[in-house]
Each structure stands twice: as C-alpha cells, then as structure tokens.
Design a protein around this nucleic acid. Structure first.
Lengths: 344, 344
DNA sequence: CTGAAAGCGCTAACAC
DNA sequence: GTGTTAGCGCTTTCAG
C-alpha cells in the first residue's frame, strides 16, 4: 500500500551514495549541503553539482529526527458531524490559501486535516505524534470548551475566531464587534431604520457582530426589533431560508446585515425572487469581502476581513507560542467596503 | 523559531520513558503498542494504560525512518503567477475536502502546498525530500509539458484534469466531452438553438467540454456560430465579462452553457442586469454542481462532477502508482442535473 | 579541512 | 514472553 522496505525504496539515493560518488565521507557531504564554511570550496562545488545533477534531495525525516526539529504546522478544519458538510464558503479557501502563503514565506509546510467537530481533541493528534510543531484551527464554532482543554494540555494551538472570556487558547480574529458596528452605522447613515440581522448568534463571532449591530442601533436611537433577528446558518441554503423566515414574520424591513457575503448574496437572490429591489427596497451589507463580492450584480457592500494579514497573524502567533511565548490573542481591524447594494 | 534542540523538546516523553515507568524494555513497549501477540496480556494492558494516561503518542518521524515507510501524500494546487490569485471557486474546496476524506479513510495524511504554475517542477519537492510518497495535483491548466517531465522523472503523480494525447502522467477527471454533450443536448431538447459557450478553450478540460458542445449541435443539425463562443476565465469577474462581450458582439442567443457553476451564476446576474429573464429569455446550464447551485435563485441546472468519487479515485490511483502499478487514467461519469435555469 | 563514531526515537532479528 | 543489539539517514562532536 505504500513504500515497503522490500520494494524499490532502495532506489532513492542518499547521502552515502553522493559521498561514495564524490569520494568523500558523508560528513563532508552533509557539511557541503548545509553550506558549512568548513569545507574546501572546490570540494563543495563538486558535491553540490553532483547532488544537483543526480537530483538528490536530503531526507527531511531523518534530518528532523537527528536535529530534533520540525518545520511543519498542522492546519485543521473542523466539520459538522451531522452534515459532514464540506465547507463551501470561499472565505475558507481564501484563508487556507493565505495560511499556505504565510507558512511558505516562513519556510514551513502545512499538514491539512479535517476533524469531526464533536471530537475536537483528535485535532491534536498530529502534534502528539510529533508530525507538526503546533496547530492552527480554522473554525471556532461552539467548541470553546474543547479548545480550552487542548490548550490546557499544552498543545500549541491558535484558533481563528472570537476572543472569549476565560479563554486558555490563543485566538486571532477580525474585530467582530467593530465590524457589526461599521455595517450597521453605515445602513443607519443611509437612512435605514428597519435593519434585519442574519446570523446564528450561538456562534461567538456572530454574537459579537450582533453586539456591534445592537450598539449601532442604540447609538442611533433605534430600537432593535426581535422579529428582525433571524438565525441564519452558514450552510448554502441559509440565505434563502432566512429570507423566507423574515417574510413569514411579517415585520417590515428596509435593510439586511448578513454575517457572510455568501449569506448576503443568497439573501439578495431570494429577496429579488419576491420582487424586492436591491438596494431601493432593501439595502444589504455582507461580511468577509470575498473576491466574488465585487463582481456580484449589483456589487456587494460588505465588511472586509483582512485575509492576508490573518494568515500571517495566525502563523506568527503559532510560532511565538511554540517558542514558549505567551500567545497573545489579536483582533484584526475590519474595514467597510461600500458598493452598490447599500448605495441608495 | 521552532523546536530547537536546547529547548524544552526534552519534555515530550518517549518510548524509553514509558518503558522505564512500566519496568520493561522499549522492545516490549513497542510490541505492546503495535498490538503484537508476542506480549503477555497483563503486560500489554499495563503498558497501554500507562501510555494512554500519560498521553503518550509514538513519534511518527522516527517510526517512519526506521520502517522506511511514510503515510503522507502531497496535494498541490498551482496558482497563477500573474494574479497569484487564491482560487475562489468552491469546487476546489470541495475537492480538497473530498481528498482529505479519502486520504483519511486510507490512513494517510495530507501535506498541502500551493506552487507557482510557472515553476511546476517545485511541486515534486516534498516527494524528492521524502516527506510524501506521491503527489496529487489539482489543476492541470496548461501545464501538460511540465507534468510530463515530472512523470518522466518518475515522480508518482496523479492529476485532476483531462486526458491528453502523449500523456506520461496519470489523470483522473470527469468525462468532459460527455458533460458538454449532456448540457448541450438538454438545451437543444428544450428548443434552444442559439446556445452560447462560456469558457477558456485553451484549458484542456474546457476544450473537451467544448467538443461535447459542438457534437451536440452537430447532432441536432445546428451550426455553431463563432460569435457565440466566448472565452470566459474562471476568475470571479469572468462571468460578467463574458456576458458583456457576448452582448457587444450582438449575435442573438437564447441559452448559455457555462463551464463552471460560478461562471454560470455570475453570468445569470449579469444577464438579469441587462433585463433578460432566466430561463425565459436565456436558459443557462453550468458545470460542477457545487452545493450552492441548488440554493441559487432560480436553482441552477448543471452538469455534476462526482466529487466524492473523484477524491477516492485520485487517492486510489496514486496509491497504485506508488505500489508500482501502471497508473491508469480514468474519466468519471458526469450527470445532468436539471433545475430551474433551463426549465422553460 | 576531513573522517570516524555516536546517536536522534524507533523496530526487528536474534538470543535467552 | 522479554531483553539485547543493530541500524533507518542524517548531523555533529571530536580527533586528526
């Protein structure tokens, strides 16, 4: 099923082969390859060329073992055990890409795994077995407790998500309260007063966005109508369902703040299906600023999460943790991007 | 920056510790942990419990080195060096998820990396350095030649994409010709005759879908109008641009076959922006059947690519290759999913 | 400057 | 049943 000892595994050439071919010892080859100055220039060049021409590449596993080091980081994406659904939100893909870039920049590899959100402790397995030096977890969901346990077990772990009270683990996230505030302030400034909120407030990040939403309304002297708070899921059908529910409740509304761009777009489609015009009848603001948003028709207003910075911040935080630092949680600044769906 | 030798790396307990604590030799611990029958039941239980209670986990790196085995597979996603764009198509995320599942099923880990499409040979690096037993590459694009070179170098590699003439590497893909045929046959059956094609025919997969499209038209005795062939890119703006171009050309059309669902959805939005009704004025069929499609308004007709099967097939093919088998390319069956955008 | 030897954490003959 | 020993592919003292 895989490289078995008996197989042609022998084919892969190793340092000893290069040494023999170059007429030196493996020590010298090792030194040459690692750029040590303790080796004759002529010898080094010869070895380097030999290695290159034979396409030799050092065996990282052996090197790691010997040097007790490791340059790979585990990235885990929890999935819902009920639906076992693949995350379909492009935001996650962007985050993955951003992480991959940030890790590559620092010379680290990325071991990706999906784990059942209900048994989140398995997320630490690649760490326990020494395959990775730490874990970056994308998707806090409702697993605060399990994450705390991992941290208590001294697993170096950084989570993309909201900062919560009594939190033992390190989180990096966007400033969700400020984000919710930005979006809602903007809608209020556009003269909207009946602003619906789409999102599952059981999720910490959404709860914080909701807080920002409430703060903005309060600041404007508008009372938050509970009928306008719709618990929309991030599943693909969430947007349509939320619109249906909102209409069913019959409370008038002139705007929607949706907790993800995908949710916003699905909602816009559904609203139109019911004859409502965007933004004339209903202004909409999303969250994330995925690439698609600017090409949507009409282009979507949204709260931008700084994805590139996020990847870098996650990696930086993890490496600090691994180095024994405290692991400071951070909230990245969000930014309002005004486009057509909230123009009027 | 990472686990340095001097650090607290010593903290991590190893087999010798367990052995000492259990009052046996490391051999016995090793045997107990691997479930060997050559060890006293009582001893085994004691060791197992000790290990579990201390949260001991075997060091995979050392194990791999000793056993000359490796259970991790490299998955690489090329990116365009111009745009350095993160793939934003949910189809890729689904594929990644499907691969992760298939690999997990078989007890393999996944090392994910993004590489510049222009220097695709770097894709083999994790293989050359012995970190992975082979490579699964998602995104054939236009890199047939470079892929051939990798295969010629005997790198075990399987590519998600189209089967091409003179191909040295193994591909798994959906049956693109059949897919294009299915979509177009369907539109023809719905009475459409002026069917536009959206896709970049320089990409092998798209070219094959285009062939299926042409075959279907020919079979129906409809002549393919070159003005209806629009080279749309898979970038987020591709759909809108394609619609603009099509309208600019001024050729009448009553349907669109788009080479991805995302393209189709973007196109639908743009078409509507121009006052066209879907499906009355323009019927639309996409490609992929991403989850979002069924929740789009109106629900999108599309050609389903069997994602779960794809992940499994890719993994199966790679493992066969690694085992020294020939590495048979396969085309997975596609399926037409009729929804509202082609209903009328 | 270079080589010999020890050892990273683990497994597998081979003995007892 | 269990321990002893050698060694996976590499790096690194320590001697020359």
């Amino acid at each position: 099923m895989n490289q078995t000892p008996n197989d042609k595994a022998r084919q892969r050439l190793q340092m000893a082969d290069i040494a023999r071919l170059a007429g030196v010892s493996t020590s010298t080859v090792s030194r040459a390859l690692s750029g040590s100055t303790l080796v004759n220039d002529e010898t080094r060049t010869r070895i380097l060329e030999l290695a290159r021409s034979l396409n030799y590449s050092i065996n990282i596993g052996a090197q790691n073992l010997r040097m007790k080091q490791n340059r790979t980081v585990g990235v885990v994406v929890p999935y819902d055990s009920q639906t076992r659904q693949h995350l379909s939100d492009p935001f996650f893909l962007s985050m993955l890409g951003s992480l991959a870039d940030a890790l590559t920049e620092q010379g680290f590899d990325m071991l990706l795994s999906r784990v059942d959100a209900e048994t989140l402790d398995t997320a630490a397995q690649p760490f326990d077995s020494g395959r990775v030096i730490g874990i970056i977890l994308i998707g806090q969901w409702r697993h605060h407790e399990q994450l705390n346990q991992l941290a208590a077990r001294r697993v170096p772990i950084v989570v993309w998500g909201a900062q919560l009270p009594q939190q033992l683990y390190c989180t990096i996230g966007s400033d969700n309260v400020a984000g919710g505030r930005l979006a809602t302030d903007h809608l209020v400034a556009r003269g909207r007063r009946r602003i619906a909120f789409f999102g599952d407030a059981l999720l910490p990040e959404v709860a914080q966005r909701h807080r920002g939403y409430c703060e903005a309304l309060a600041a404007a002297g508008v009372e938050a109508d509970p009928r306008l708070q719709v618990p929309a899921s991030f599943l693909p059908q969430g947007g349509g369902e939320a619109v249906a529910e909102l209409l069913r409740r019959g409370a008038p509304f002139d705007a929607v703040f949706a907790c993800s761009d995908l949710l916003a777009m699905a909602a816009i489609n559904a609203l139109r299906q019911h004859g409502l015009r965007i933004p004339e009848d209903v202004a909409v603001v999303g969250y994330d600023d995925i690439e698609l948003s600017s090409y949507f028709h009409p282009p979507l207003s949204t709260v931008r999460q700084p994805i590139r910075a996020a990847g870098r911040a996650l990696v930086t935080a993890l490496l600090a943790l691994v180095d024994g630092a405290a692991g400071e949680s951070r909230q990245l600044a969000t930014e309002l991007v005004v486009r057509a769906t909230s123009a009027a």
